[in-house]
């Protein structure tokens, strides 16, 4: 059972039965009381403290006692995936309205192309894995979900605009980029431990054939946070340099050149002993 779930395999969920609801009520009442191991005992470390949530591997159901809500785990996963696409759409519309078509398309396209390519490289290098997402891009091999690249593409312009408001639009591109990266890491320190850990496991850091990590923070490899900083900072710096110093079609050529350089650097970074 544990193996099936740790490999990311999710069977169709079923509705919680009256018995499970009763057990959940008991769980809520007893707070930190350990659950019956025959029911939910497979989760590594579950027996320590899970005061607000319980997870039944038997039915792959995430039972959330908080607010008495019961949500099947696959539903939470799909909601998360759909939510990213929705956020991307919102950011795209906002950027289109306030900055116009040209900068919007360049920022979103470059953000998506760079992040999706780097993610593909990382998965190929066995750094992490994205099991059981709905839509992958490219569809074969099923390595990186479309939502991941779209999520990056949505975050980059948001932190870029915030940095420009904080430091001023005329600030040096490198300084703005460093702030972009720091802000992205700031929010990822909450996102990644919650989403990549049990029981959601939207992405996994350990597995057969994957590269082991040495340094961890909050259950997430330090490599991840360094990667977030580098990727967002590089994206922000390169987009600003191109917007400030190039015109017309030259911008696309320069972005293409930056993309190629970034992929070389990313390959080197991924080979380091993290």
């Amino acid at each position: 059972m544990a193996n099936r779930v740790s490999q990311g395999g999710l069977a169709p969920s079923s509705q919680p039965t009256a018995q499970h609801r009763a057990e959940l009520r008991a769980f809520r009442v007893c707070g930190k009381r350990a659950l019956d191991p025959t029911w939910a005992g497979w989760v590594p470390g579950w027996e320590q403290v899970r005061p607000l949530a319980a997870f039944s591997s038997e039915r792959h159901t995430l039972l959330i006692s908080f607010f008495s809500v019961l949500l099947p785990l696959p539903v939470v996963r799909r909601l998360y995936e759909a939510g990213i696409v929705l956020l991307f759409a919102v950011v795209a519309v906002r950027s289109w309205r306030t900055r116009g078509a040209g900068p919007t398309v360049r920022e979103l396209a470059f953000g998506f192309a760079l992040s999706q390519s780097v993610e593909l490289l990382a998965v190929q290098h066995g750094r992490y894995d994205y099991p059981d997402w709905l839509v992958y891009f490219p569809p074969h091999p099923e390595w990186v979900p479309l939502g991941v690249g779209l999520g990056w593409a949505a975050i980059v312009p948001v932190v870029m605009r915030m940095s420009e408001r904080i430091l001023g639009q005329a600030a040096p591109a490198a300084k703005l980029a460093a702030l972009d990266g720091a802000m992205a890491v700031g929010v990822d320190l909450v996102i990644d431990p919650a989403v990549s850990g049990e029981p959601l496991r939207m992405w996994t850091w350990r597995g057969e054939g994957m590269t082991p990590y040495r340094a961890w923070l909050l259950g997430v490899p330090v490599f991840n946070f360094v990667g977030w900083f580098l990727l967002v900072a590089a994206c922000g710096w390169q987009l600003r340099v191109v917007e400030r110093r190039s015109q017309g079609a030259q911008r696309w050529w320069r972005l293409g050149l930056f993309l190629a350089c970034d992929l070389i650097i990313a390959t080197v970074v991924m080979r380091l002993p993290w």
Binding site: V49, F66, V76, V187, G197, L200
Partner: peptide, 14 residues
């Protein structure tokens, strides 16, 4: 983004 991640963290027991 922070609020959403925090809510998810509550949901998964952390």
């Amino acid at each position: 983004l922070w609020a959403n991640a925090s809510l998810l963290a509550v949901m998964v027991g952390r």
